[in-house]
Design a protein around this nucleic acid. Sequence first.
DNA 1: AATGAATGAGCCTTCATTCAT
DNA 2: AATGAATGAAGGCTCATTCAT
Lengths: 216, 216, 216, 216
Amino acid sequence: MPRPSNTDERRAQIADAMIRVVARAGYERASVAEVAREAGLAAGLVHYHFQRKLDVLLAMQERLTAAHLDRVERWSQRAKTPEGRVRAFIDCHLARGAEEDPAALACWIALTAEALRDPEVRAGYDRAVRALIGRLESAVRDELAARGGDLRRARAVATAVFAAIQGYYALHGASPGLIPRGSAAPAVHALAGSLLARPIAAIPSRPVAAKSRRKS
Amino acid sequence: MPRPSNTDERRAQIADAMIRVVARAGYERASVAEVAREAGLAAGLVHYHFQRKLDVLLAMQERLTAAHLDRVERWSQRAKTPEGRVRAFIDCHLARGAEEDPAALACWIALTAEALRDPEVRAGYDRAVRALIGRLESAVRDELAARGGDLRRARAVATAVFAAIQGYYALHGASPGLIPRGSAAPAVHALAGSLLARPIAAIPSRPVAAKSRRKS
Amino acid sequence: MPRPSNTDERRAQIADAMIRVVARAGYERASVAEVAREAGLAAGLVHYHFQRKLDVLLAMQERLTAAHLDRVERWSQRAKTPEGRVRAFIDCHLARGAEEDPAALACWIALTAEALRDPEVRAGYDRAVRALIGRLESAVRDELAARGGDLRRARAVATAVFAAIQGYYALHGASPGLIPRGSAAPAVHALAGSLLARPIAAIPSRPVAAKSRRKS
Amino acid sequence: MPRPSNTDERRAQIADAMIRVVARAGYERASVAEVAREAGLAAGLVHYHFQRKLDVLLAMQERLTAAHLDRVERWSQRAKTPEGRVRAFIDCHLARGAEEDPAALACWIALTAEALRDPEVRAGYDRAVRALIGRLESAVRDELAARGGDLRRARAVATAVFAAIQGYYALHGASPGLIPRGSAAPAVHALAGSLLARPIAAIPSRPVAAKSRRKS
DNA sequence: AATGAATGAGCCTTCATTCAT
DNA sequence: AATGAATGAAGGCTCATTCAT
């Protein structure tokens, strides 16, 4: 009788170690040996459970994504209205007291950079982003429906909110101290409020400014 | 008869080659040999003009930043009002027909990821971001002044607009095809309009949603 | 079932290979690749067992020192008196028929030169020299005690004998053919005899010479 | 009319710069560029005046040797007797207040190590040593003649004194703090006195020790 | 004579991956 | 499953030497 496989735990253990190493060193500089050490395992074992180093990154990507989706889900459940779900999505990412694991944030940015070059990472990245935006989009759609808005804008609205969050993350990570304390969440809430309220195209501006916008 | 120095041109030549290589391979995978080949130079020459590979990255960073600031400046000059300058800043980054060098965009994301780990890259990143946000902030401040708004919000507003742009860039690079065509610029314009119009804190929302925001 | 470690043997194997390579090429010109080849190993393996090339040198230094101390010990055991131990120390280094591994001698000189510049090598060098001189000193002290001499001179006497040996080694290595055959050991024995017999300061000389020594 | 050649000065200037660089870095690590910088010259100029880096080392070797011979000569002139010249030779190297340029000492040891491997350096080393020992030998021979000693021992005596000095130099350089203060010169004087006084073979020792010496 | 750029080989080191046990 | 040694390919960087000016 063979001993029960512990492959799944080991894979998780290794992927989690990679999170910590990538967070502090980036993917390229995260050596397999270092990841093994971080996981408390022998160096050779990593390649017993994963064919390539890249596969560890992909596993880590999935774990990060799953955990993050969970987190979003948990925050959403407290919301009672569609708009509430949108608000919860934003707060879950940016509200004070909602600070996520800094390692996860660093990894996310590393994954973004990696996705630019590697098709496999890009695929996982795309899947993750689509899942997240998808959740947001459904909340936006419901809200727009309740308000009688144009449902076709839901995707654009969700994307905008997501992009803003993503941008704050990047700034926060790479240029800390630049974002006025407490300004991120309110700003994205304003964005959401604005986009839910009226057609995107109708940008409020002082008349004189109208012309300057006609440039490209 | 001292030989005239061509160091500046060479450094520029090498930094420009690094832009192309980093764009397609990332910094870590951009080998010095490859950069030299891309520049049409012998491998050893790179280290004659730069002490470390990192210094090439920093030079490239400065060139990208300078070029981008130039670009922003050029777009701004057409604007006749403060708000126009804000609009120009957004359009310069996101409007259709404003597509920047894709290589520059890829490099920017690579630099963001690198800034997370390397203090020197972070310093340059910070400088670049502050210069960009600074320009935006002054426009925002002028506009708020004209509207009688709270000038202290200028920085937060500028940061929000910048973050949104940054987020769109990341999404565009890593998950192309996800952003509804033509939605980016209008969304950020909406954000700007919304933030210029009223205090950030006053988020318009349906009453019921108020509670859901009160979360953990 | 953990694989049994062979690190100690490998390290010894590599350090021994370095002895041979340093002997014929010096430390700087002893490339890691060459050392590996000499040891019959793959190049990368050296850095699996040693962090830096310098660490191989230090390991080699320790092996040389240990072997040499052993050798001195073995020669000393035949001596029955303290003076006999001093004589044995000298003969062990310089007597005909006592020729040591020429590679070891070449390495020792290389280590001397390296010690001038590198603190780590210097530390090992210092330790080796102190151990050797220490053994000699204890023999000298015992002999001086037996003769009723000044024990405080023991260190100086031991150092003098050691320096003379060291000097002969250097000459032998760098300018072979210069030392009259068979003159080294007797000369150092004369030195030892002279220093053991009377206070160092009392140098026998013809009266007239006394002045010439009073010079600048 | 061509401008007068300054080649000799330049060569000297470069060789002197190499002394300083070799003293602090050793020959292998003394890069041509660093030597040029130390000399305040352009990098390319070194290879205009010297074909190979090794030739700079050889030039430096000659300069060091010449300067040192000069120094020995100067010290000797004050001596009025042959023995006085021997004493002066020792004091010139080891007496307190006779400290030579530490850079020269470091270079000498570096040259010793280099001589082990390179035939050209060895040739120069041999020449230098023979010149120095030769001067010493002639003084020894004169003294032995005056004493009615065996003139054939002159070379061996001179070599012994020189070896002892050389050994003290090595110890001083590589293991500073090991030599009891002020003990070097007296010890070598004792050696000289002892060797001038009686046949080398007749080593004074307590009877019991006689046997232990019969080992090899 | 002199300059400083250019070349290309070689070195130490890192590392993903494989393998014997 | 697991271990730790082994392999070989790069990579960044240094540097002696050459060359155009």
